[in-house]
Structure formats: structure tokens, C-alpha cells
Amino acid sequence: MSAAVEESFGGAGRQALASPFTGIWRNGLLAAGTWAFAAALTYGLPDVISWGATNLFALLTLIGAGIFLLLSVSVHRLGKAGQTLVHYGPWLIVIGLWFAVWEVVTAKLGWLPKPFFSPPQGLLHVYVTDWDRLLICVAYTGRLWALGFFSGVAVGFTAGVALGWSKRFAYWGMPLLKLIGPVPASAWIPCTFFIFPSTFHASIFLVALASGIPVAILTAAGVGQVNRSYYDVARTLGADNRFLIFKVAIPASLPNVFVGIFMGLYYSFAVLVVAEMLGAKFGLGWYLQFNTAYSAYANVYAALIIMALICAGLVRLLFIARDRLLGWQKGIL
């Protein structure tokens, strides 16, 4: 086994070469098996009631199985993406199994109570038939979240820097922040709806409040904790106040700021849905509530999955942004 082979295949290569089927991704084959099994169950057994999209789901899982079958011999040629796939091999197998079990206990045997539990084809049916409305809801939610979150972070960050830097700001601002900070943003709902001209503005305010307060608190703490020697060094090198704030205090407190932004991100999701359930005309929160009222639980699950993907995606984006900006910190962490 030459070093070159080891190198080009990385960990994946070593695993495959160690197995009796040289060059074959065993977990890929198994995943193809479980997915094909799920497809066969879905297509072969009759549904207890019609959910729509049963055959489509069977087809999609079969296509999935086909892809895994192809990948099981070609994954080593895909480089980095291939390595990621290989890493998640066991997950792919289990997802196929999960499809099969889910299919059997809902659509095929009807063991789980009916309006509340939907089989996979029920969700698929929602995506196929209601995609336009879901898309609009995603856009509405996205607009509300973006306006609220970014304005909240901007205000929170500015306030935090001022509070951490200026003693006078801290004297007047800190007690207020300590008083208002712990109150959950959703507790403001009764007031906001008559303070603001529209529910949209009120919702933006709530999301901004939820994301801004942790950012303000952690930024203030971060700026306050900056090592005094950094200021001394900068001052002897000829720095003025402006330089001290923008080139010393802010970069030095950025790790704290990011902790605040992460907290704010999670809080903003929580408030977002609540805000949309109150008097909004579109949006994922509204979609959830609307469909719950009609017992359309397949739609609820479909929206929940979209929400989970969006939130996880945003968290991931924030991680990427942090790693870009705080690369200098790697040795410290």
C-alpha cells in the first residue's frame, strides 16, 4: 500500500482498502440498501388512507438509493466532498431505516394517531402543493428577522461600546440595561402593539430587542475587560481616543461581542415565531398557527423542517463569519 494512495484517499481510502471489497464504500452500499428498502415498503404496501405523493416519495427514495449505489464505487474520486459523505455514511444508513419505520407506523399500519402524525409522503405532498405559499412565508419571515436582528445588533453593539468605554454612559445606562435586560422580549408584547403604528413595526422591535440586549451586555463587558496595557502601549505609540476605541477596544472585545451575537441569534428565533403568531398576515410563525387551527399537521411539520434548516443555516453562517474575523484567536481558544 503506497503512501501516495493513502494520501490521495485520506481516511476514507484507508477504511475502504482495509475492507475485503477494495475501493468500495461499504456504508454507501448499506445506505443504498436501506433507502431501497424504504422505497419498496412505500410502493409495495397499501396506505391506510390517501396522503398523496406516496409514489413520488417512493420514487425519490429509490433515486436516493441509486445515487448511493453509484457513490459506493465513485466516492473516492470526489475529494473533499467525498470525505464529508463518507464521514456521514452511518447517518445515511440510519436515515433510510428511519424512513422505513416512519412509513410503516404511520401510512402503512396507522399506529400513530392520525391528524397529529404525518407520514413522509404527507410532508412531501405539502412541499409539492403548497410550495408557493411556503416560499412567501419564508420571505416574510426572512424580512422580519433580517430587519429586527441587524438593527438590534447594530444598536446593541453601539450601545455596548459606549457603555463599556464611557463612565458617564455606564453610570446612566448600566442600571437601565440591568433592569430591562432580564425581561423576556415577549413580555413586551402587550405594550408594543399600541406603542407602534403597525404590528409589523412592533414585531421588528421585539426581534431587535431580543437580539440587541445580549449584544449590548456582552459588548459592554468585553470593552470593559480589555487589558489596560493595550491602551498604554497604543498611547505611547501616539494613538488618540478614536484609535483607542476603533483599533484597540473594539477588536479586543470582538470575542465577547460574538458570544452576544450568538445569544441574540437564538433569542431572535424564539421571539420571531411568537411575534408572527400575533396579527401577522404571512410568515412561518403565522403558517404554523394557521395550519394548527385547521389540524393540517403535515403542513406544520413541513414548516418546522424549513425553520430548522433556516435557523441552523444562519447559525452556521455566523460561525463562518466568526472564524473569519477571529482567526487570530485560534491559539487562545
Binding site: 487589558n227 496595557s229 493595550y230 498604554d232 502601549v233 498611547r235 505611547t236 505609540l237 501616539g238 484597540v248 477588536p251 479586543a252 470582538l254 477571529l326 487570530w328 484567536q329 487562545i332
Partner: peptide, 17 residues
Amino acid sequence: PNPDRILVFQEATLFPW
């Protein structure tokens, strides 16, 4: 302070960022 007179500390105190 004036950059004509510069202080070097016991710790290097480099700006880590």
C-alpha cells in the same frame, strides 16, 4: 505620551488581533 519616548513592557503586549 509621545512616540519619541516608547515603553516596552515585560510582557510583549502585542495586539493579538
